[in-house]
Structure formats: C-alpha cells, structure tokens
C-alpha cells in the first residue's frame, strides 16, 4: 500500500562505501578491545587516531613528500609510457623487437633496482621518483600498445579505401581508440607508483611515509606505523578516485551503457 502512495525509496548506493568503512573500523575497534591485544601488535583505530594527532607535523611532512615523489614518478611514467606505447603500437617490427625486452624488464622486482639507483643518485628523493616511474611505466605502455594493436581491420579499411596514410590512421583512429586503454591504465599505474615510491623510501631515504614507518618500526612505535599505513591508504584512494574521474570525463563514449542510463 505504501508503494502506491509512492514515497521514493531512499537511495543507499552512494552511502555504501562510507557505511562499510565505518563498519570495518568499528569491528576492528571492538575486536581489539574485546581480545585485549596489546597495541604493540595491533593498535585499535582510536589508538591510531591518537598517534596521527600526536605526530601530525611529522606525518604531514612525510605524507607530502610521498605524494610528491609518487606524483612526479607517475607523471614521468605517463609521458614515457604514452610515448613508448605509441611507438610500439606504430609498427609490428618495433613491437616484436621490444616486447620480450619489456616483459623481461617488467619481471625484475623493482626493489632490486633501488640499490643501483642509490649508487647513481644517492639516498633521497630521486630514487623514490625513479622507482615509482619504473613500476608505473609498464602497464601504461602495454595498454596504449594494446589499444593501437586491436584496431578493427574493417575500420582501418574504411580509411585506407579513402587513401589514408599510416599517420592518418594513427591520428583518426589509433590514438582516440587507445585513449580508454590509456586512461584505464592510469588507475593501475598510480597504485603501482605508490608501491614504488614507498619501497624506495623504506630502503633508502630520510623522508617520506616509507622512511617514517621503517623508523617507527625500529622504535616499536606500532601505532605510528599504522598511522603511516592509514595515510598511504588515504592518498591512494584520493589519487585513484582522481584517475577514475579523469577516465570518465575523457572517454565517456567508451562507457556507453552508463552514459545511456543517465
């Protein structure tokens, strides 16, 4: 009967992320309190929050440093990845030649490269930026090249039948077509960039969240370690959301079903 009078049901969907997040922290808080785990093993969220407030100036400084190295490394990866992706997708010969090299390079754990980078550039910001770059670079290349390599032959024929040169086909079809792949890869790339910069900061730096957490750990300051993790999660979510937003804005046509629904 109430459905006939037709009060629109409340739309829960946009609230679900918040509800689940709050529920997770509540569960965590209760779990820790009930089991009586010492905060040197697993601090409760309230204890982590205290640590965040207590060490805020330091946390803020290290967070900005990590955000900075990650973003710079990521931007380099975007430029380099886009350029190499277009090059690789341009010609089957370049693709065949570079592909095994790239796969091999990607198989190297990037943490193993940090010592080399330190030898070349010293401890600090530069190795962190480069590690973020190296790790975020690959998915962008692969995605852009895939977008170019999977042009439907029919579409290419339409242009070729009109006398289009390779360059025309690239500009009119290849590049626009690979854009959804490119913007899709940014979400993966930014997440990996954080992994790269934090790895490098943990091993060889004197600032950044990675450095902060490894020093906190050596002092058994577990709540501060967790505070660092929380800050990383926050930065990661924010950057991921930014990339998802950019993706949606730039390549709406690739999400046709969602656009149709609007």
């Amino acid at each position: 009967m109430s459905s006939v009078t037709g009060k629109k049901p409340f739309n829960w969907l946009p609230w679900m992320p918040w509800i689940y997040t709050v529920a997770l922290f509540a569960l965590w808080e209760f779990g820790v309190r009930l089991s009586g785990l010492p905060h040197t093993i697993l601090p409760a969220p309230s204890r982590i929050w205290e640590a965040i407030i207590q060490y805020w100036p330091a946390i803020q400084r290290h967070s900005i440093q990590t955000l900075y190295t990650t973003t710079v490394g990521f931007l380099l990866a975007v430029i380099g990845g886009l350029a190499l992706g277009l090059l690789v997708g341009w010609s089957r010969f370049i693709y065949a030649g570079l592909y095994p090299i790239m796969v091999g390079f990607n198989a190297i754990p990037k943490v193993a490269l940090v010592p080399v980078l330190v030898i070349w550039f010293g401890i600090g910001t530069v190795p962190a930026i480069l590690t973020a770059f190296l790790i975020a670079f690959f998915p962008i290349v692969v995605n852009v090249a895939t977008g170019l390599a999977t042009i439907e032959p029919e579409t290419e024929d339409v242009l070729r039948a009109l006398g289009a040169k390779k360059m025309d086909i690239m500009l009119k079809v290849g590049i626009p077509r690979s854009m959804p792949y490119f913007f899709g890869s940014l979400k993966i790339a930014i997440t990996l960039a954080f992994v790269g910069s934090v790895i490098s900061e943990t091993v060889a730096a004197n600032s950044g969240l990675g450095f902060m957490m490894s020093s906190a750990q050596s002092q058994f300051n577990v709540p501060l370690v967790f505070a660092g993790l929380v800050m990383l999660a926050v930065e990661g979510i924010a950057m991921y959301a930014l990339m998802a937003w950019i993706e949606k804005r730039t390549t709406g046509w690739a999400h046709r079903s969602t656009m149709m629904a609007v």
Binding site: E154, T155, V158, A161, L162, G163, D168, R177
Partner: peptide
Amino acid sequence: SIVGMAFQNPTMLPWRTTLDNILLPLEIV
C-alpha cells in the same frame, strides 16, 4: 579515391558524433 565504400558492418567511430563520422572522408581524401 574516386570510390566510396560502405562495408558489410557499419564502422562508425564511437568517439565521434554521427555528423563528424560522416565528415571523416573529407579529412582524408
């Protein structure tokens, strides 16, 4: 280039409006 061809499957480019799709040959020929 004096030939116009319509293929078996419509091959419109999804990122262009219909009008821009129709104008595409003019950007090539």
